[in-house]
Design a protein around this nucleic acid. Structure first.
Lengths: 187, 187
DNA sequence: ACCTGAACACCGTTCAAGT
DNA sequence: ACCTGAACACCGTTCAAGT
């Protein structure tokens, strides 16, 4: 990549992060370009779709989430590891409002620029779930997609102003539904 | 209302129902007007906002859902009544794709045209929940908003192509989390 | 009373023209 | 190689003008 292009790329990403944190995942692409003092076409040149932009924007966070699963797997008992990771997943989704719809979409579309990152997160969660199931700590009939779905649903819930105040409680309820012992309030 | 206006109103509503069933809740207002052979301004005259249109569009269904709660209350035991109604709520939301976001929004905004209908549904559910709780059939720490939130979350889940195939199972899990006995598979 | 075309300020896509 | 203005086909809002 040419030096000027590289500079544009980084600058656009920084500005995008800023605009998205203000306006959520459906921020205007034009607005991002405008704030970056760059033509809209230039933004689209670097990130041909909204999903491509978010792939670049979220890759660090998603990778961290994936890696976190591995760490928890070796440092904590199965049930606690699963619930802790689940909580982090919800918190992440919550940190970029509206991003959960993008991820849920990507999960079903292998052509999406976000597909790879989402799949990695999905797989990391599935591993933790499997580990918990092996010890009888989590429902045996649940699969990795279900876990991802419930995490997404909670992420969606906390994005709704009407439900956000009950986010912690609803997390507790759903975490309890995943675990076999139903307590859900470890940690 | 003048006769021609009344005719327009009914026609617009019929066309809107059609377009929304094809394109979901974020269908283009212009498209609806176009298909109804009417100026966009005329559509906006009858329904000044998208929510006003959906209020008219959904009122029948929402009222039915509210009424259904009363019927179940007298015809079925508390736990079955609650789960059956919850299932109907999810099914309704599922029947108009994207409408769940509109309802969740309305739930937090008393000025929304959809607020009244949503509140009625909310209250009807809360009654069923309370009745189940009185018999110890449902979690005691849950409130009406939580029930509405979980119903919405499930409605959102089934709207996502990635998760729709697991809708029945996820319903089962969440219904089980609401009930105290955790079976969730009555009926 | 009710309807409507038109102007407006947006959006993302596409591409020919510039450096 | 990379950038960009401009044309395009959309969107919902608003309002003056028409019947």
């Amino acid at each position: 990549m040419r030096a000027d292009a590289r500079k544009n790329y980084n600058h656009l990403l920084a500005v995008a992060r800023e605009v998205v944190s203000e306006h959520g995942a459906d921020a205007s692409m034009r607005d991002i370009a405008r704030r970056a003092d760059v033509g809209l076409a230039t933004l689209l040149r670097h990130f041909p779709t909204r999903e491509a932009l978010f792939d670049a924007l979220l890759r660090t966070n998603l990778d961290a989430l994936t890696q976190k699963a591995g760490e928890l797997e070796t440092s904590q008992p199965p049930d606690e590891a699963l619930v802790s990771w689940f909580r982090e997943g919800v918190a992440f989704v919550h940190s970029y409002s509206g991003v959960v719809a993008l991820m849920a979409n990507a999960h079903a579309d292998p052509d999406s620029a976000l597909y790879a990152s989402c799949s990695a997160v999905h797989a990391a969660g599935a591993r933790l779930l499997l580990r918990a199931q092996a010890e009888g700590a989590a429902r045996a009939d649940m699969n990795g997609t279900d876990l991802f779905a419930l995490m997404s649903a909670l992420g969606w819930l906390v994005d709704q102003p009407a439900f956000a105040p009950r986010a912690d409680y609803l997390f507790h309820v759903i975490a309890g539904a995943i675990l076999t012992n139903r307590s859900g309030d470890l940690k």
